[in-house]
C-alpha cells in the first residue's frame, strides 16, 4: 500500500457561488463521503491547507490581476470577469488556501513523507489564464504547482495530464512555449464545448512546439474512444517525455451522468484511466503523482468516482 495524501479543508466551502451554480461546496462533501465510504480514510495522510505565499502565485499570474481579484471579492461583487464566475467575500482566501494546500502536499511528497496525493480543492484552476478568470477558475492551481516543483524542488520536467471534460485553456496557454512542461488534455471537441480551445492542431508554439497534445472526443462518445486515445495519444507522449513528476487535472465531468458535458464515460473507464496514469508514474517517476480536482458536478456520482480514484492512488 502506498502512502497517499488527501488534501481536504473545510475552508474551501467558504467560496460561495450562490444558489444556482454547479460548482458548489457540496461537491467536496460528496468527494469526502465517497472516500469515507471506501473505508480507506484511516490509511490516508490527511492534509489541511495553509495559505499560499503570494510569490508562488506570481510565478503564473500577473500581479495586477491578483490585485483585481482581491479588490472585487472585498467589494462584495458577486461575479468576476464573466457572469459564469460567481464569487463571494471569501473566494480570494479560498483560492489562496487551494494553492497553499497543494504546495504543502508537494512538500510532503518531495520530502518522502507521502508517495502520491489527491487534492480536493476548490475553486478549480485549469481555465484560469495568467490575467483572466474563466470557467469558475481564478488561480491556475496546477500551473502554479508545476512552477513550484521546478523552482523550489529543482524538478526539470513536469507532465500535466488533464482529464477534465473541458480543455484546460489556461494551463495550455501558460506552458505552450515551454518544453519543460508537457501538457496533455483529453476533452469534448471545442466546436461543441466550453471553452472552444484545445483543437488537435494546437501543439505548442516556439520552443514548446510538440509539448502540448490535445485528444478530442465528440459529443455522445465515451469509453471506447477514451481507451483508444489514452493508449494511442497519452501513453506514447508520456513515454517519450519521461517526466520527473506527473500532475493530474482531475475532472469527473466526462462521466455519462454528469450534465455538464455530452461525453459518456463510465465509472469503470475513469478507474482504468487513473490506473493507466499511475502505471506511467511508476515507470517514469517513482510513482510521484499529484492529482488535483477540477470539475465534476454530478453529486450522485462524485462519491464513487472520488472513492475509486483515491483507492487507485493507495493501491498503485
Amino acid at each position: 500500500m502506498k502512502r497517499t495524501g488527501y488534501l481536504h479543508d473545510n475552508r474551501y466551502i467558504l467560496h460561495d457561488t450562490g444558489p444556482h451554480h454547479p460548482e458548489t461546496s457540496d461537491r467536496l462533501l460528496a468527494v469526502y463521503e465517497g472516500i469515507k465510504e471506501e473505508g480507506i480514510l484511516e490509511h490516508l495522510t490527511m492534509i489541511s491547507a495553509s495559505r499560499a505565499d503570494l510569490k508562488w502565485i506570481e510565478t503564473v499570474h500577473d500581479p495586477v490581476y491578483i490585485r483585481r481579484f482581491e479588490e472585487i471579492c472585498l467589494s462584495g461583487h458577486n461575479t468576476f470577469d464573466d457572469p459564469d464566475n460567481c464569487i463571494s467575500m471569501d473566494t480570494y482566501e479560498s483560492a489562496f488556501l487551494a494553492v497553499g494546500g497543494i504546495l504543502d502536499t508537494v512538500d510532503l511528497m518531495m520530502t518522502d513523507k507521502i508517495d502520491n496525493a489527491f487534492c480536493a480543492v476548490r475553486p478549480p484552476g485549469h481555465h484560469a489564464e495568467k490575467d483572466k478568470a474563466m470557467g469558475f477558475c481564478y488561480f491556475n492551481n496546477i500551473a502554479i504547482t508545476a512552477r513550484y516543483l521546478q523552482e523550489k524542488w529543482g524538478i526539470e520536467k513536469v507532465a500535466i495530464i488533464d482529464i477534465d471534460v473541458h480543455h484546460g485553456n489556461g494551463t495550455q496557454h501558460i506552458f505552450e512555449q515551454d518544453a519543460s512542461v508537457f501538457y496533455y488534455s483529453i476533452h469534448e471537441h471545442p466546436s461543441f464545448a466550453y471553452p472552444g480551445t484545445g483543437r488537435d492542431f494546437e501543439v505548442g508554439t516556439l520552443g514548446g512546439h510538440g509539448f502540448t497534445k490535445n485528444s478530442l472526443v465528440l459529443p455522445g462518445q465515451g469509453d471506447d474512444v477514451y481507451y483508444m486515445l489514452i493508449q494511442g495519444d497519452l501513453m506514447p507522449a508520456i513515454n517519450k517525455f519521461e517526466p520527473e513528476v506527473i500532475l493530474v487535472s482531475t475532472g469527473f465531468d466526462a462521466h455519462r451522468d454528469d450534465e455538464m458535458s455530452d461525453i459518456k464515460v463510465s465509472t469503470q473507464c475513469f478507474s482504468w484511466m487513473m490506473q493507466t496514469i499511475m502505471d506511467l508514474g511508476e515507470r517514469h517517476c517513482d510513482g510521484r503523482v499529484i492529482s488535483i480536482l477540477e470539475g465534476g458536478y454530478s453529486l450522485q456520482r462524485l462519491p464513487e468516482l472520488a472513492g475509486n480514484h483515491v483507492k487507485i492512488l493507495l493501491d498503485s
Binding site: H20, P22, D82, D84, M134, G135, Y194, P195, E259, M260
Partner: peptide, 10 residues
Amino acid sequence: LLTNNVVRVK
C-alpha cells in the same frame, strides 16, 4: 452561448 454553464438553460 458565451458560457460554461448550460445545464439549466438546456
